[in-house]
Design a protein around this nucleic acid. Sequence first.
DNA 1: GACCAAATTGCAAATCATTTGCATTTAAGT
DNA 2: ACTTAAATGCAAATGATTTGCAATTTGGTC
Lengths: 146, 146
Amino acid sequence: MKPHSHRAQPKVADRLRAESRKLTGPRRAIIATLEEQSHPLTIREIHSAIGTECDLATIYRSMHLLEKMRLVQRFDFGDAVARYELVRHEDHEHHHHLICTDCSKVVEIDDCFSEELERRIATGNGFAQITHKLEFFGVCPACQSK
Amino acid sequence: MKPHSHRAQPKVADRLRAESRKLTGPRRAIIATLEEQSHPLTIREIHSAIGTECDLATIYRSMHLLEKMRLVQRFDFGDAVARYELVRHEDHEHHHHLICTDCSKVVEIDDCFSEELERRIATGNGFAQITHKLEFFGVCPACQSK
DNA sequence: GACCAAATTGCAAATCATTTGCATTTAAGT
DNA sequence: ACTTAAATGCAAATGATTTGCAATTTGGTC
């Protein structure tokens, strides 16, 4: 049984409709795919999970839209490939990852440094609307014993 | 007068020689260019600073080598472009940036969260050799008043 | 100071991720 | 069913980065 399967779809449908966007076949498939995975997926991974019934360009365009609507979140792991994760709960939107530099295994990290540091950096430099990107890298247990 | 001009060259020359690498014209030019800037430069910026006397491919190759030798450091700002900064002091190798999302102005940040957090994340997940990438984004003072 | 081998370069062609133009299709509301 | 804006597929374009290969350099040697 798929853990969260199709739970987000109605919510997504409403959000799309609210902006006179459409819940199309490809978009259903993309969201269903993201729902089954708890870690960020690349466009290519989404594409092969869906099964080529949908063009790559369509996925690129959909991800841009969904990102702008804050329904998905984009992550950059430093390789030149975008990864996307479904936003399941608003309060979980902010999180990071721990990526194995050897096998690319991804662990979700909920810890983050204190907001006080961010605030200090913002005010110290006069910047507003400050955010940050943070990802951790290391060698996972399995790869350490190779 | 250029602040740090040509100060790193001899050190770099030694490090290269130690690995039977060569200090060539293009490499001198690349390093000289990086020395004049305190913020990370893209390959294209380095190329146009040097003045086309050197092929783009050569710069790409040199940056890979210099990065592997830890003479330069690569940063990713989330756009699909690599940026490189000269490593001036070993003790300053670890730092981050604050980037204006409007005008791309870059401010160097020496603050970082406590190593304790990193250590907790590492041990908590059994990972070794842990590192992290962290960059801040916001709107700089100048762009706030536009 | 010439000589050699290995390292490096320039140039062009190849990759890879992502974007875009355009004609055709489709979801949503009436 | 009808209309229309939104979305899609396909192919071609972009942009960053990489790579093959022949021609040049650099650093060490005699």
